[in-house]
Amino acid sequence: MSLSISTESLWIDTAEGRLFCTRWFPATGSNTPALPPIVLFHDSLGCVALWRDFPQQLCQATGREVIAYDRLGFGQSDRYPGTLPLDFIRHEAVHFFAPLKAALGIEHFVAFGHSVGGAMAAACASLHPEHCDALITVAAQAFVEDLTLAGIRIAEEQFKDPQHMARLEKYHGDKAPWVLGAWTRTWLSPAFSDWTLEDVVGTLHCPLLALHGEHDEYGSALHPERIARLSTGPGRYLILPGCHHVPHREAPAAVLEPVCQLLVH
């Protein structure tokens, strides 16, 4: 049975700037208790709009509210004040997710992150262990791999084509050069080369699902394997056949099925 979905967009104030946020709500009966929402964390070039219709599909499939927001500097959110710090993953959890959680009155939640958003989702789960009911990562990186850096260098060259930059500007406006630089300069920096997600994942006790495309151009199967193996809670990983780096757009049903298995009881 299909659910009626309603949406709401709003702004979240933080000490560093405003965040644009959208919520998708399933229509539920008055006697049906609301399930903890799923909070989406986008990738290095992403924003709310680039999730496209996946949040609605996720809301429909799970019967849960879905929340997505543009990180500061991305999409419709305010500009980022300066250069992205090397500890930007933990910084996101402390300085942006925390005020969003408070503003929306979120108690328990499910963290769902794509690519570097998976690392941010894991950081939020780690910092809120009593409130995070589950962690789902899609195409997340667990360390700085040569394959990841090679993919970023290829993308960096492609964005020299004005048509590629124009597509980025469609979603980020005149912040697009900052968005691209925040991704490429951070990951290609020698100072970032020893970053790993292992200490964060090792503190997790909640159920964990790590999804990864078979042909992901930004990371090998070592990433979901490590994420699932290092978690101290019930963790599993799944390689999605035929998928690349954006499985939720390439094959949404292949993502939604294991997510529902994890969340729908």
Score class of each variant (00 low, 15 high):
P99N: 10
V138Y: 09
H114A: 10
R71I: 02
P81F: 03
L72T: 04
E92R: 00
I154W: 11
H95F: 06
Q261A: 15
F192P: 07
L197I: 00
D161S: 11
D87F: 08
L58W: 05
L188C: 12
L263V: 10
Q60R: 00
S193N: 13
C260D: 08
A254K: 15
A102K: 15
I152H: 01
A121L: 03
A150E: 15
W178V: 07
E92Y: 01
D53L: 10
A150C: 11
R236V: 06
K101V: 05
L147F: 04
P129M: 06
L50I: 12
P207A: 07
L127F: 05
F192R: 14
I12K: 00
L100I: 06
R153L: 13
D70S: 05
L263F: 10
M1V: 12
L168I: 12
T22D: 08
V39Y: 01
A221E: 14
Q158N: 14
V259K: 03
H131N: 14
D216R: 09
R23I: 14
F109L: 13
F20Q: 03
H265D: 14
P234C: 05
Y80P: 09
I12W: 01
F25C: 04
D70P: 08
D87L: 08
D53M: 08
P99L: 11
R52K: 15
G151K: 04
Q141G: 10
A15V: 13
F159E: 01
A134N: 11
H128V: 00
H91D: 15
K170P: 03
S30Y: 12
D174F: 04
A93H: 03
A119H: 02
L40K: 05
I239M: 14
M1E: 13
W11N: 12
K175C: 03
